[in-house]
């Protein structure tokens, strides 16, 4: 029990944030697990080469660790970025992941509750108009896009170092960052992640037309017709 938080309020605070807390927790556990198994994997190579093993602390500061982390991050954020943007214009009849067919596009100010249609509890920048409204209207895609670009850039930098490390281990010359960007290794790491993300989105969009998970907002209510679009459970 955290000191200073009333006993009756803590469970409520946990409950209303349980989705974020759950994913935050399993994210951290996975990241730590990756650090440990990654160290074990890396040390197999060290030992087979007659070298001393490295500690987890050294490994989590290595490019070998971060290229594996960031290549997955960039593809996940690209997936959600594309999903956010594509669902503005593209629709899928029957899918709860799609909005209603007739709502394709940016929608009216009234639908979006901006400008003079803003409500009392609308975010301040939604009521503000001008450049603040423009920025806020795209803030989700902007931030997701920035994380995607940043992660991909980090993948390229750490990937160049990790690739050079492997080259040197095999008595070959290291590569520069710009040379690495033109190598199949960089694009293989990138595209192999993209394809799996796009397949997962496609599966969600299409399977949720016909299949249900009772109680999940990612599914239509169990008894809803297959043709119903833009309905979440």
């Amino acid at each position: 029990m955290t000191r200073g938080v009333p006993a009756t309020r803590l469970p409520a605070a946990l409950k209303v944030n349980s989705l974020s807390l759950f994913f935050g927790l399993i994210f951290l556990l996975s990241l730590v697990a990756q650090a440990f198994v990654g160290t074990a994997y890396f040390n197999r190579e060290q030992l087979s080469g007659g070298l001393r093993p490295v500690g987890v602390g050294d490994y989590v500061l290595s490019s070998s660790y971060w290229v594996d982390v960031t290549e997955n991050w960039q593809s996940e954020f690209l997936q959600f970025l594309l999903f956010i943007l594509a669902t503005v214009w593209f629709v899928q009849k029957g899918s709860p992941e799609s909005k209603a067919i007739e709502k394709a596009g940016r929608e009216s100010d009234k639908d979006q509750k901006v400008g003079r249609y803003a409500e009392e509890d609308s975010p301040a920048w939604a009521r503000a108009g001008g450049w603040r409204l423009s920025v806020y209207s795209h803030s989700l895609a902007l931030v997701m896009g920035a994380i995607f670009v940043g992660s991909w850039l980090a993948q390229s930098v750490t990937g160049a170092v990790a690739y050079s490390e492997e080259q040197l281990r095999n008595l070959q010359d290291p590569v520069t960052w710009t040379e690495y960007l033109a190598l199949p290794e960089f694009w293989s790491r990138t595209v192999q992640n993209w394809q799996s993300e796009f397949l997962a989105v496609l599966a969600m969009v299409v399977l949720s037309i016909y299949l249900r998970e009772r109680g999940s907002p990612e599914s239509k209510p169990v008894g809803t017709a297959h043709e119903a679009t833009g309905v979440e459970g």
Binding site: G49, S64, S164, E165, L168, R169, L171, P174
Partner: peptide, 23 residues
């Protein structure tokens, strides 16, 4: 001198030497 993680390459006037970090 090129260092990449636990591996390095040192180029001298007459040689290219490869090294590894051990401990």
């Amino acid at each position: 001198v090129h260092v990449s993680g636990t591996q390095a390459q040192v180029v001298t006037t007459s040689d290219t030497v490869f090294l590894a970090r051990s401990g």
